[in-house]
Design a protein around this nucleic acid. Sequence first.
DNA 1: TTACAGATTTGATCGATGTCAAATTCAGAT
DNA 2: ATCTGAATTTGACATCGATCAAATCTGTAA
Lengths: 234, 234
Amino acid sequence: MEETADMMNSNFKLNNRDRAVLMKTPFLTSLTGNSLVRMMSTMSVVSLTNRKSIFREGEDADAFYCVLSGYVRLYQLNRDGREADIRICSPGDTFAECLLYGGTKYHHHAQTAEATTLARFDMQAVRDLAEQERDIAKAVITSLSKHLITTMDCVANDRLHTAPQRVANYILTRCPVDGGPASIRLPFQKNLLAGMLGLAPEALSRAFSTLRRTGVTVRGRVIQVGDVQALREI
Amino acid sequence: MEETADMMNSNFKLNNRDRAVLMKTPFLTSLTGNSLVRMMSTMSVVSLTNRKSIFREGEDADAFYCVLSGYVRLYQLNRDGREADIRICSPGDTFAECLLYGGTKYHHHAQTAEATTLARFDMQAVRDLAEQERDIAKAVITSLSKHLITTMDCVANDRLHTAPQRVANYILTRCPVDGGPASIRLPFQKNLLAGMLGLAPEALSRAFSTLRRTGVTVRGRVIQVGDVQALREI
DNA sequence: TTACAGATTTGATCGATGTCAAATTCAGAT
DNA sequence: ATCTGAATTTGACATCGATCAAATCTGTAA
């Protein structure tokens, strides 16, 4: 416990909310005592304003990150300079951790999509820790597993569903489970939601208007669903 | 070494080629001695003819697999019953290993796309081993990392490139690095290549004919490339 | 070699989504 | 509350890729 107190002091920029987010990531949630302290000692906190580059494709990968607050956009460029989002990272998401053992260079660009606070983990330090401490290795495995599953689901979603279906799915993942009416508030700009679903912003907008026929009302960031069950049938 | 001999005997159905493939997977390539023996003892060999189901979406995940020979198609169905391939697994590929720590049920369907031999690993046994043996945990991490990277690349490829570009990329990954002419032979039906690239078979066929302008000739499974460098410019 | 079933290609068409430009709305700063 | 730049929506259009049907090709087995 003294160690924990020490650890918190050493990261003086970590506020309560950010610490709570960090402790719930697959990377840290199962760790206790010494392992937790050692992981935290490889970490530093980084705060960035909107649209700042975190890393670029091809750079040496010397750290991976966990989003504490704000959002991060991972994207690639094609030959013509067009950008395509690969993943939008929300608070609690970890990114580039696959490079712990998967390669030495970043495979894409990362930039903030809002004012953002990150936990930065030194790649080599965590690599070393994972080889020493069983529970850290296990935490890495859990994190990679979950991440891989969501990424495969993303491929399936892209290949299987139309734009309105993807939007409906997204809304449903944020709705209470019952079948009645519901109301949710987007936690970010529609811009980001579009990237998350692999759509151009205009296509997202049109998908929303298609869903109006199914009882979905959009005003700003607030989405009202007349009948959650009906949305499932899309 | 005696253990190794014993191990091989116990898997009497594993021929030389299959064993070589298995030993080169990220899962096993770094293991030696006792760890290797213990991993192999959780494995059994399964041979299946074409178009046989390996598992179905929603079933309890009690094993993961490595393709030794043949091909496996991972796919999902949408509401209308249309199938979309999520991944085509070739010899050396492992699938469903993300369920070691990522969940208890299969997330998609798996079926053979040719006569196929698989190494079947008992999920719980490997889970236990990974907690005991550091090098097994590390092998799991390596395998998951590489798999995650290729899956994220797949998302990027789907969202960033047109059909001819994807086909060109695929050809380039199989070509010698120099810029001159080259000839490759597809290791499977075009059917599977289409699924791998997220295309309908007709779209793959049209992509090939688009690439004729760039000096690509297709006859059966043989693809001739006039100028590898030119293909990169697509 | 021939015949056949399955694979692939081609043609015609349609629907979905990206792109660009203009109009409108929103949200933060004054 | 108003203003202003950014975000979003809408319209018009082009393009890509899916689908269905028909023609052709390929590989395999007799």
